[in-house]
Amino acid sequence: MKAGKFFESLPQVPDAEQFTDILNRPGIRIERIVSRGHTSPAKGWYDQDEHEWVMLVQGAAVLGFEQGGDVRLEAGDYINIPAHCRHKVSWTDPDQLTVWLAVFYPA
Rank of each mutant, 00 (worst) to 15 (best):
K2R: 11
A3P: 11
G4Q: 12
F7V: 03
F7C: 00
F7T: 09
F7W: 13
E8H: 00
S9W: 00
S9P: 00
P11S: 14
P11I: 01
Q12C: 00
Q12Y: 02
D15I: 03
A16H: 14
E17C: 11
Q18F: 08
T20L: 06
D21T: 08
D21M: 04
D21V: 12
I22Y: 06
I22P: 02
L23H: 13
N24G: 05
R25K: 14
R25H: 10
P26H: 03
G27K: 04
G27F: 03
I30V: 15
E31L: 08
E31C: 01
R32D: 01
I33P: 04
V34S: 02
S35P: 06
R36L: 05
G37K: 02
H38F: 12
H38I: 07
A42V: 09
A42G: 05
K43M: 04
W45I: 04
Y46P: 06
D47W: 06
D47R: 05
D49M: 05
E50M: 04
E50Q: 11
H51Q: 11
H51P: 04
E52V: 09
V54S: 03
V54T: 13
M55R: 15
M55I: 08
M55T: 13
L56R: 04
V57P: 02
V57D: 02
Q58Y: 04
A61G: 08
A61F: 03
A61T: 02
V62I: 15
L63T: 11
G64H: 06
G64I: 05
F65R: 07
F65W: 09
F65C: 13
E66G: 03
Q67V: 04
Q67S: 14
G68K: 07
G69L: 09
G69Y: 13
G69E: 10
D70P: 06
V71G: 01
E74R: 12
E74W: 05
A75Y: 12
A75I: 03
G76A: 08
Y78G: 06
I79N: 02
N80D: 15
N80K: 10
I81C: 07
I81Y: 14
P82F: 01
P82M: 13
A83L: 10
A83D: 06
H84W: 06
R86G: 08
H87I: 11
H87S: 14
H87Q: 07
K88Q: 14
K88R: 15
K88G: 14
S90D: 15
W91R: 12
W91I: 14
W91M: 11
T92I: 03
D93N: 15
P94F: 02
Q96S: 14
Q96H: 10
Q96V: 01
L97E: 13
L101E: 01
Y105S: 15
